[in-house]
Design a protein around this nucleic acid. Structure first.
Lengths: 262, 262
DNA sequence: TCAAAAGTGTTCAAAATACACCCATGT
DNA sequence: ACATGGGTGTATTTTGAACACTTTTGA
């Protein structure tokens, strides 16, 4: 997902007082975001529906949120801005993982047709810098804006054909997430502030596609010392309510980033 | 290191029959390569000296090999080509790891002065896609070409100020190498076909900055099953010659990529 | 009272660590 | 004969893996 449409409305970004109307677009480089959320015990990806004069259905109607960068902004800033402009998401975990530059990546017929509506030079080559993001689904409500008409969560096991090379980008993002999940405390970006150990285990299981032993998991995760019990318990469940825990970032920092693996 | 100078001589790339003279340069995107070699029991990085009318000494004279991409080539192809054009290195391990897009990354005075000699639009913003490479120093002889006047190996502990944001790029490449060295068989790209276990251990130690127990190392590394004894021994050493081993790629593939860690 | 998930320990096997001496070779 | 690095085994500790029943709650 890239396009100049986003410059048709002002940015609310407080860090830059210039409006997007006066900013020069770099028509050769874009950013795309793969946003992961943990929903219904599943890992899902947030996609947008593209706004077009003649609505596309099925094939190619969906895309990752992404757009061209501005000449005066850093890549990380661009990713934050674009994400905000298309989905209203803000201040979430966002990290660059790979760039994609196949010269033919925008050449599919339906993609070209769409680019004709939103680009000054639809046939131009664009390389894209891809980011992955992690969000707590309950805390943030994505809402479509810019050239996105809707946002939609899609389970990663069930992703349809997306625009451009966005399926490949999703695949790579997943690989990245999987390879990092045991080296860094990423899972806590996907969970609410307080969570049960069963939920925590479930996030690990969903991401790594492996099933874990409950007792061993609890022993090890509590053994790290930075998962702390809170005074809260689950409410409204039809069974014994689970104790809730939180991730203590300070304790984690002090423990020198040594993390767990299963 | 980027510039249009490379298009002033033909590519010898057999995979593309068009000469570089007829290819259109993408003036907004470059590739840069951080080439690691294992020399004198040390990890070193290959840099080039920049060709300039008035030779620069000290500050900013050295840079990573890199250049602008062509409009019709993939990022990986561009990295291979540029590496070949500036250092004559070919068919070595090369992998993208991060893109750098600070809008001011080319703005230092000495860098701008240099860009004036090699660029049509020296003040243009360029984002660069960085690659890291691993080479067996005995097998390949880098030799300067294009706008490089010399190539030089520099120990990673002793890297001077480089052009542009190339110090930052080196740092990130090292991080990447360190984080992957125990997950993938990268070390064998740095060693000759046959090597002693002491050399192998030393590569791990140099990359991770940790010292390992000789007996435990040998037990574990042989325990993987894909480090195979050869019939050769070291020659010309003033002590008991070490048995030489090789990395068996087929056995590694079959062992499902499960690697060691220390 | 029942259904549903929470919570809890022990045993065994495997892997990690720590550690010191003799050996083969070239000079 | 000596200097240099090569090569080897064991004991201890730590970590990983497998495994089943009781408890608490809401409906």
């Amino acid at each position: 997902m890239e396009g100049v449409a986003a410059i048709m409305h002002e940015s609310r970004d407080k860090t830059n007082s210039r409006t997007n109307l006066t900013r020069k677009v770099n028509t050769h480089v874009s950013v795309d975001c793969v946003i992961f959320g943990f929903k219904d015990s599943n890992l899902e990806v947030l996609v947008i529906e593209r706004k077009v004069p003649v609505p596309l259905v099925g094939e190619g109607a969906l895309a990752l949120p992404g757009n061209l960068i501005f000449e005066d902004e850093d890549l990380d800033q661009a990713a934050e801005r674009v994400l905000k402009e298309l989905t209203n998401l803000d201040e979430i975990f966002l990290e660059q993982f790979k760039s994609f530059g196949n010269p033919n990546r925008l050449d599919k017929k339906e993609d070209q047709e769409w680019l004709k509506f939103i680009r000054t030079v639809p046939e131009a080559r664009v390389i894209t810098v891809a980011y992955y993001a992690l969000i707590q689904v309950d805390k943030y409500q994505p809402s479509a804006a810019g050239f996105a008409t809707q946002t939609r969560w899609i389970p990663i096991s069930d992703i349809p054909n997306l625009a451009f090379d966005h399926n490949e980008i999703c695949e790579e993002a997943l690989k990245q997430l999987r390879s990092q999940v045991y080296r860094r405390p990423l899972v806590f970006e996907l969970l609410p502030e307080m969570f049960s150990l069963a939920e925590l285990q479930s996030v690990y299981e969903v991401i790594t596609q492996a099933s874990l032993d409950k007792r061993n998991f609890r022993r090890k995760i509590l053994g790290t010392g930075f998962i702390k019990e809170t005074s809260q318990k689950q409410i409204g469940v039809a069974h014994k309510p689970a104790q809730l825990y939180r991730f203590d970032e300070d304790l984690f920092e002090k423990s020198e980033g040594s993390f767990v693996s299963f």
